[in-house]
């Protein structure tokens, strides 16, 4: 299987191998997107759960005026998709867009659900993933409410993966809830 190691790393909470989990490795389908393609658009139901092979993607919501407000990013080795729409099978509130040429592997909802039926150990994976998601969202909310723009910038740059440093600044600025001008000024100050 081409992406065996990628999947083993992504699902590191499950002790995966082709021998013990053959159906799991057969579920994945590869898809590619050009830079700035919409992978999922707001108003459509997210049909897939993704693991990123390469590229950077952003997830954002639009304001009433149609301006982008970035919620997060995904990049190689991470999970991607509009998860709430995928789970609830309801139209997405968000856009998922490829910021760079992107290669993903994906499974559909039926396959995702079957994981928990075929392999009981995926319950633990699900618990850990949802726990991390919740803690991550709460942490981000706390940072947005309590930290200054400068502090948010510093914390983000300390833990920012190298991959994200190459994407347009306006997306990073939006993620940090600041204007591109403020982001640019803070970057100059830092350097």
């Amino acid at each position: 299987m081409e992406y065996e190691q990628l999947l083993i790393n992504a699902f590191r909470n499950v002790n995966l191998s082709v021998e013990t989990h053959p159906e799991f490795f057969e579920m994945w389908e590869e898809v590619e997107y050009d830079r700035s393609d919409f992978i999922t658009s707001s108003g459509k139901v997210e049909r897939y759960f993704y693991v990123v092979v390469s590229g950077v993607q952003t997830i954002y919501i639009l304001s009433k005026e149609g301006d982008k407000q970035v919620i997060g990013f995904s990049f190689n080795g991470s999970f991607s998709g509009v998860y709430d729409s995928f789970l609830m099978e309801k139209p997405s509130h968000y856009f998922l867009e490829a910021l760079t040429p992107t290669k993903l592997i994906r499974m559909n909802k039926q396959q995702y659900d079957s994981l928990f039926e075929i392999y009981p150990e995926f319950d633990r994976w699900g618990r850990i993933v949802h726990q991390n998601l919740l803690v991550g969202r709460v942490q981000r909310e706390i940072e947005l409410i309590t930290l200054s723009a400068k502090e948010r910038y510093q914390i983000f740059m300390e833990r920012c993966p190298e991959k994200l440093r190459t994407i347009p600044q306006k997306y990073l600025a939006s993620y940090l809830n600041m204007t591109p001008e403020t982001f640019s000024r803070l970057r100059k100050e830092k350097s």
Binding site: S41, S42, G43, L62, E65, G66, D67, P91, F95
Partner: peptide, 12 residues
């Protein structure tokens, strides 16, 4: 102001 992502959302 025309914002294509917003247009896509409205079409959906």
């Amino acid at each position: 102001q025309i914002k294509p992502a917003h247009q896509i959302q409205r079409i959906n």
